[in-house]
Design a protein around this nucleic acid. Structure first.
Length: 358
RNA sequence: UGGGGUGUCGCCAAGUGGUAAGGCACGGGUCUUUGACUCCCGCACCGUAGGUUCAAUUCCUGCCACCCCAG
């Protein structure tokens, strides 16, 4: 058995590499070069894929005596992730680039390379589990709830799941770091990554402007009753549920209700106006491999760090999925992913559509 | 011009003769392999010049600004 390990330079994938090797696989380490290092990297930047990160990965691979490759996926990343990210914001949506990166880079382009290298498995440092169950592969949450990443993996197909390993998926983060330490990995104490990898400054809107060279025009902040409350600095700066950065004083906090690319208006309202019970998810993938033919009762997450919420889900004639929550949810946001769960298992997921698209 | 009113942090807004609540906004931090949210911390010497008083933002006077009414 031969495995290709996607090593980001972080602790998790390093330990994943080690564990895969221990399990008896012939291992090849690799790092995907997804973008040029941003011009300005802030101190203690918590992102991945910088030159330093590649060197950390190489260092660990060397320590483990593995071959190590760096794949240049910059073009594909620009096309499949960054451009899509920009398109979303320009259209009033709020994208989740990490999900796309998993889908189009780690479990697509990397698979092609694995085949070329004669590897039958792809290994990553994600916190999630894959188990065979009734003749199919079930994607399960990680036991370490605080680190569970199953949400960002819903796009995996049965075919992909059959060739993927998540060696640290059973571990707690503490245990992972312990293993890294025991093996003297250079990155055993490296901070967890956060922020969008190609937006190390945390200001994604500035990055969008840099990529497109466009200026996004100011527009009106419109209160739910139609009153114009002020000027916003361009729709790409806002997302549903957002409070900070509006700069408007009011008796109670104001939140973004909706971003309308057609009128260039940003609609505002109160906290209570953010709650709703229904959504339509498109571009849906049934991770479980089973497309339910009737309405099912399950749970769903509409953002990464959220507990699953009880709901019912129904497949529509066009393949989209209608999700109805038992209780109203705060700020169901178009562009974000809605992932369905049955207990620990990821049933599937899709992208939340806007009311206009529905 | 005559009569009345108001003047407290960027916005709204309490308040007392004894040394400035709160909300919003804003800044920082936390959280986080997305964007948000949450939570925490920070954030004024009370229009101005005098006077009364042991002590004034709070009392008095002038001035300035704004608002309303009247012509």
């Amino acid at each position: 058995m031969k495995a290709l390990i996607a090593m980001s330079g972080g602790v998790d994938s390093s330990v994943a590499a080690y564990l895969t090797q221990q399990a008896g696989y012939e291992c090849i380490g690799c790092t995907m070069k997804l973008h040029d290092d941003p011009g300005v990297i802030k101190e203690n930047s918590h992102t991945c894929c910088t030159l330093d990160d590649v060197e950390d990965a190489r260092n660990v691979a060397f320590k483990l005596g593995m071959q190590f490759y760096v794949f240049n996926f910059k073009d594909g990343f620009k096309e499949k992730i960054i451009d899509k990210f920009i398109y979303a914001y320009e259209n009033g949506l709020t994208p989740n680039p990490c999900i796309d990166c998993n889908r189009f880079m780690k479990f697509d382009k990397l698979f092609e390379r694995a085949e070329v290298l004669g590897c039958d498995h792809i290994v990553t440092g994600h916190y999630a589990r894959i188990v065979e169950k009734d003749g199919r592969f079930a994607l399960l949450k990680a036991p370490d709830e605080t680190k569970d990443q199953s949400y960002v993996l819903y796009s995996l197909t049965q075919e992909q799941l059959s060739h993927v390993l998540f060696p640290v998926g059973d571990l707690t983060k503490t245990k992972t770091r312990q293993i890294a330490e025991e093996n003297g990995f250079i990155n055993s104490h490296k901070p967890d990554s956060q922020d969008i990898c190609f937006v190390p400054t945390g200001k994604y809107a500035d990055v969008i402007k840099e990529f497109t060279g466009k200026d996004y025009p100011e527009g009106d902040f419109v209160y739910k009753d139609g009153t114009v409350l002020g000027k916003h600095k361009g729709i790409i700066w806002y997302t549903r549920g957002q409070r900070k950065g509006l700069g408007l004083a009011s008796e109670e906090p104001l939140y973004v209700l909706r971003v309308d690319p057609k009128t260039n208006n940003v609609y505002l309202g109160r906290e209570k106006d953010l709650y709703s019970k229904e959504l339509i998810a498109g571009d849906f993938n049934w991770t479980s491999g089973i497309i339910p033919d009737t309405e099912i009762s399950c749970k769903a997450k509409i953002r990464y760090r959220q507990k699953e919420q009880p709901c019912t889900a129904k497949v529509l004639s066009n393949g989209d999925v209608k999700v109805t929550f038992d209780e109203p949810q705060r700020a169901i946001t178009p562009g974000q992913a809605c992932v369905l769960y049955d207990g620990d298992e990821v049933l599937g997921g899709g992208t939340i559509k806007t009311e206009d698209e529905v």
